[in-house]
Nucleic acid binder design. Structure first.
Lengths: 152, 152
DNA sequence: TTTCATGTAACTTTATATGTTACATGAAAA
DNA sequence: TTTTCATGTAACATATAAAGTTACATGAAA
């Protein structure tokens, strides 16, 4: 399976947008992310439906943040993407008649569920505002370590 | 990506083998698992190299368990598979120059690393012997709940 | 020497994320 | 009104990885 990077991607977009007033076109964002405008629209669609961002057509149109960044967590963003699978591994069969498989599933599910729960909890602890704050720190210390260009 | 079920599969095989003395041919095991003999050989290869199982060619050949089931954990089995990816999600770019992406990666990595560590820890708590014990309990209570056929 | 079983390479299939093209929709500007 | 710009979305293409399949070499027992 290819690794899912949509959460990573959409957070990148949001954080970029939070740095300056919008709106931003999908094309602008796509260039910054080195990808395709349609990919941007795709990962933003869920956030628009929930109301975290807004989009406008036509001249001067594009994407705008429409939420309180201190109220939205990474977990909320993940949910807006449609709760895609977190774990790369799973059971062979979900509701097996075979008792052997049931025993295996029970053991694995316990571990899997714990890990998923922890991951979601951790994501729920971080707001977009906190991410922005961390970024500001990084931007501040940048000039002290060689002014590496901001690629995007 | 397709969900990886090799750990689930190989545990199923081991638990089956633990129920009665071997050896078992790949074909027998494949039928029990409703899959292909080559798939069995493939997921068993790593375990053979580490010495958890043995394989013999020719008449009377097949697979045999060659380890102390109370000493091998699910984590050990996972490692024998070659430590395949645990998480379905990841960062867009691993070592980005973009500070925005660095900030995103830092936040996500913390959550990802914690979840992975917990998952591995949980797998490390369960031995194959414990799995077998759980299975024996399930086999015992089976007759009290309708004798559902053992599919495999 | 025949039969059986593993070992493995090569290929096919399937699932899923990502990338791309094409075009409809609607809004602002000319 | 017409043109331009931007999103919305379907359809198709590509990439990656697991799982399934075929074919054949290797080696052991009958």
């Amino acid at each position: 399976m290819k690794r899912d990077s949509r959460l990573s991607g959409v957070l990148h977009v949001l954080l970029h947008m939070a740095q300056q007033p919008g709106p931003f076109t999908s094309e602008t964002l796509a260039k910054a992310m080195d990808t395709n405008p349609v990919v941007i629209r795709r990962i933003m669609a869920g956030l628009r439906e929930i109301g975290y961002v807004r989009s406008e057509k036509g001249h001067g149109g594009g994407w705008t943040i429409a939420c309180d960044l201190s109220k939205v967590t990474l977990r909320d963003v993940y949910a807006a993407l449609g709760n895609p699978p977190l774990l790369a591994m799973g059971n062979r069969t979900e509701a097996p008649g075979c008792l052997v498989e049931q025993a295996v599933n029970a053991a694995l599910d316990q571990a899997f569920d714990d890990a998923e729960a922890l991951l979601l909890a951790r994501l729920g602890e971080v707001t977009l505002a906190m991410l922005g704050e961390d970024l500001r720190k990084r931007l501040g210390s940048r000039k002290h370590q060689g002014m590496k260009a901001h690629r995007a």
